[in-house]
């Protein structure tokens, strides 16, 4: 369990997200805790259904009913925000937390020009008049690398290409200089060559402004390149969290280990990729103990009954019984 730190920009404590339905309650995110420091890029990686996007949605208060935060706290700059009423949350969203979504086309209103949307967002959050807001919008567009911003500011979203649209979305997220940006699969809909542009842009901007980013993605490559720390999620829980170098190079959790092995690499040819058998359990079938136990090659008796907590190993934290004292002893005995 990570200790709450004083300098954390965002602290998530024991967050649990539930989806009640007529057959019972599905737990999509189960008791996760993590911190993001100012200016830090935290990558959140996992397969679809691991709960990574939901965690992002919960932080900005955009969980769609019937989904709900059942337990836990979300603390932004020392202030608890998870139980705020909608109106106040709306003010925080945009002003203090920006958001970037996967599909740039759906996050822009097709009926308004890009400039109009930027100016409106700026004026919602900052005390600027129309002229000043337009100047700021222009600055933002230039900052995110849109050539000919002066002219393009009056264009409509459909006149931009995919990569350019994503840049506009980033500009929108940056409008009010938020301290934190939640980026949910920001490069998934883009081609490889454009992906690299967007990642380096995002990285550069955050570095300049000291903005923290929670980068949600399924792409380990993007994480390896952009993130400072990474949290690996599995079945609504954090399996491993730590500095990106350590997690990528010396993955500790058997799941992370398998995940890294299953990614094909250019340069070293292998005949068969490492594969993790089976697939992530459905929400109503999450096994007791460690949720990874049916697929784990190093499964032990206690994995079937006892849920592992996160515990420090080197600079990372890993939720795996292999790293318990008993487990370590057993491992050493082999």
């Amino acid at each position: 369990m990570p200790k709450p730190s004083n300098q954390a920009l965002l602290s998530v404590r024991n967050l649990r997200i539930e989806f009640p339905n007529r057959r019972g309650i599905l737990v999509a995110v189960d008791d996760i805790s993590f911190d993001i420091a100012p200016g830090e890029i935290l990558g959140v990686v996992g397969e679809s259904g691991a709960g990574k996007s939901l965690t992002g949605a919960a932080i900005i208060g955009l969980l769609e009913p019937p989904g709900r935060i059942a337990r836990g706290e979300i603390i932004l700059e020392g202030e608890r925000i998870d139980h705020l009423p909608y109106e106040e949350l709306r003010k925080i969203r945009g002003r203090r937390i920006g958001a970037i979504f996967q599909d740039p086309l759906t996050s822009l209103n097709p009926l308004y020009s890009v400039g109009r949307q930027l100016i409106e967002t700026i004026q919602t959050h900052l005390p600027l008049n129309e002229r000043e807001a337009r100047v700021r919008a222009l600055e933002l567009l230039e900052e995110v690398g849109i050539p000919g911003a002066e002219e393009r500011i009056d264009h409509y979203p459909h006149q931009f290409s995919g990569g350019m649209r994503q840049r506009v979305v980033i500009a929108l997220a940056l409008c009010a200089e938020p301290r934190l940006i939640i980026a949910d699969e920001p490069t998934t809909a883009l081609d490889v060559s454009i992906q690299a542009q967007i990642i380096s842009l995002l990285k550069g901007l955050c570095h300049e402004h000291g903005t923290a980013v929670m980068l949600v993605t399924h792409d380990m490559g993007v994480i390896a390149e952009a993130a400072d720390r990474v949290a690996v999620m599995y079945s609504g829980r954090i399996a491993e969290i730590g500095p990106v170098q350590e997690v990528v190079r010396t993955a500790k959790h058997p799941y992370t280990h398998g995940l890294m092995g299953s990614i094909p690499h250019i340069g070293h040819h292998v005949d068969q990729l490492t594969q993790i058998e089976g697939s992530m359990p459905r929400l109503q079938e999450i096994p007791t103990g460690c949720p990874f136990n049916p697929r784990c090659i190093q499964v032990m008796d206690r994995c079937l009954v006892e849920r592992p907590d996160l515990q420090g190993v080197d600079q990372s934290e890993v939720a795996c019984h292999l790293f318990d004292e008993a487990g370590l002893a057993a491992g050493a005995g082999e």
Partner: peptide, 23 residues
């Protein structure tokens, strides 16, 4: 260009070369 744009999993410190322009 395509090969340069691939994210680097090896963490060798190689910077991706962001490609100019779009298709």
């Amino acid at each position: 260009m395509l090969l340069d744009a691939i994210p680097d999993l090896e963490m060798s410190g190689r910077q991706r070369i962001p490609v100019a322009g779009e298709v």
